[in-house]
Design a protein around this nucleic acid. Structure first.
Lengths: 148, 148
DNA sequence: TATTGTTATACTCTATAACTATA
DNA sequence: TATAGTTATAGAGTATAACAATA
């Protein structure tokens, strides 16, 4: 494992992989996959999203979003309702059960950092947390810019 | 997007998702998926791994590793050979074409940081790179400990 | 008996293209 | 014509269990 700094981003793929596995093991206890939990997590930050908005928030294809929402609806975690204003549009939001589950799983995940991260120092934890938040703020900003 | 620091790890899932999509778009130009590229990347750091070692390095199930190696072999990027010492064991390693492709794709990826990360300051870049390397060092250490 | 790796199964995720129904 | 969403299709990733060959 070279530490000459030349492979920061491909190294990150290793972390991604190990964390997705870790996440999958955690959320499967609740009958969820990483993607389905991510769907709940995304919807928890809205008061109802269109399918297009949901797909964009999920960084996934529209056809893919349909499948994910199908599975969440089947589990009773999400409602998909026709919009009054534009009958092409579907609005998706959490059911009470979905909101409860999202809170429970998220609380559970926050108790324990993913394995490679968990071993870092407290200072690294804080630094990483701050960097993640700044990175996500850029995602938000880019979206607002696109929309506006 | 709260920045009260209470959701560092579930926030990371957002980053993971967006980066996987970004990665998929990059590597698909080379006929690869994120997983297949990760396979090449993992094998580039060995002189031949058993299927078990490969699965462990990939953080994936053994049955899954079989499928990944199957696809890499079919593309001529990887060889899977029987071991002389233990006839149960298969040894997997890159072909010259696989090694070339791994170098080319990795060089390409290093040219450009994934989108949310790319917007961060140079100082954040450096900090993040260092944290990633320390985290991966812990993964390595844990493996050596397990093995020994 | 235990271990290495594969196969069988079932489901999920992903992307593209074609389609329906609105606008 | 354009847009919102779905369906069809095909491939890929995932986990569990059962299995064959070998140790």
């Amino acid at each position: 494992m070279s530490s000459n700094g030349s492979r920061a981003w491909s190294a990150m793929i290793d972390l991604i992989q190990s964390q997705k596995k870790w996440l999958g093991e955690r959320v499967s206890e609740y009958g969820l996959t990483p993607q389905l939990f991510h769907g709940l997590d995304v919807l928890a930050e809205t008061r109802g999203a269109t399918m297009s908005e949901f797909a964009e928030d999920m960084f996934c294809d529209a056809s893919n979003a349909t499948g994910i929402v199908d599975r969440l609806v089947k589990r009773g975690l999400v409602l998909r309702e026709a919009s009054d204003k534009d009958r092409r549009v579907k609005v998706v939001r959490l059911t009470p059960a979905g909101a409860r589950l999202q809170k429970r799983v998220r609380a559970r995940l926050e108790q324990e950092a993913p394995p490679p991260i968990a071993k870092l120092s407290a200072a690294d934890h804080r630094a990483l947390r701050d960097i993640i938040h700044r990175a996500l703020a850029h995602v938000e900003a880019a979206r607002i810019e696109e929309a506006g």
